[in-house]
Amino acid sequence: MQVRDLLKVLEGVLYREEIQDKLNLKNRDYFRKNYLVPAIEQGLVALTLPDKLTSKHQKYYLTEKGKEILASLNKEN
């Protein structure tokens, strides 16, 4: 459910803080553990700097698989 919510707000390429703001989440660790990491592990979200996981310039975007899942979720609604 959290991953679905993440997919719905991830438009374009965004910083972690921007995604959290869109989801109205304040706790960084909670966001990473319950939203971001599962989405990345499922191959739905990718990193712009995969070799620099903790870079302050890190951004996230939907993969093709993520876009497909989002499209199917939108069809259901």
Rank of each mutant, 00 (worst) to 15 (best):
M1E: 07
M1H: 12
M1P: 11
M1Q: 12
M1C: 06
Q2H: 15
Q2E: 10
V3H: 10
V3N: 04
R4W: 09
R4I: 13
R4Q: 14
D5Y: 08
D5R: 12
D5I: 07
L6N: 02
L6F: 13
L7K: 09
K8E: 11
V9Y: 07
L10P: 01
L10C: 07
L10F: 07
E11H: 13
E11G: 01
E11I: 13
G12M: 07
G12D: 04
G12I: 11
V13F: 12
L14E: 05
L14D: 00
L14I: 05
L14P: 01
L14W: 09
L14T: 05
Y15R: 15
Y15T: 09
Y15M: 11
R16P: 02
R16K: 15
R16V: 05
R16C: 06
E17K: 15
E18R: 08
I19M: 13
I19P: 01
I19T: 06
Q20D: 00
Q20N: 03
Q20A: 14
Q20L: 15
D21P: 00
D21Y: 14
K22A: 15
K22Q: 15
L23E: 11
L23H: 10
N24M: 07
L25R: 04
L25Y: 06
L25E: 05
N27Y: 13
N27R: 15
R28H: 10
R28M: 02
D29W: 07
D29Y: 10
Y30P: 00
Y30E: 01
Y30A: 13
F31C: 02
R32W: 11
R32Y: 11
R32S: 09
R32C: 13
R32I: 14
K33Y: 14
K33W: 12
K33N: 14
N34V: 05
N34I: 02
V37G: 00
V37E: 07
V37Y: 08
V37W: 08
P38S: 12
P38K: 13
A39E: 13
A39S: 09
I40P: 00
I40G: 01
I40Y: 04
E41K: 14
E41I: 01
E41H: 10
Q42F: 02
Q42R: 13
L44S: 05
V45Y: 08
V45W: 04
V45D: 00
V45S: 02
A46L: 11
A46W: 09
A46Y: 11
A46S: 11
L47P: 00
L47H: 03
T48A: 01
T48V: 03
T48K: 03
L49C: 01
L49T: 04
P50E: 08
P50M: 04
D51V: 01
K52A: 02
L53A: 03
L53V: 06
L53M: 03
S55V: 05
H57F: 15
Q58V: 01
K59Y: 06
K59S: 02
Y60E: 06
Y61Q: 07
L62W: 03
T63K: 09
T63D: 06
E64F: 10
K67T: 04
K67L: 08
K67G: 00
K67H: 01
I69M: 03
I69S: 00
I69K: 05
L70E: 04
L70C: 04
A71Y: 07
A71H: 09
S72D: 13
S72V: 10
L73I: 14
L73E: 10
N74K: 10
N74W: 05
N74G: 06
N74P: 00
K75M: 13
E76W: 12
E76A: 14
E76I: 15
N77M: 10
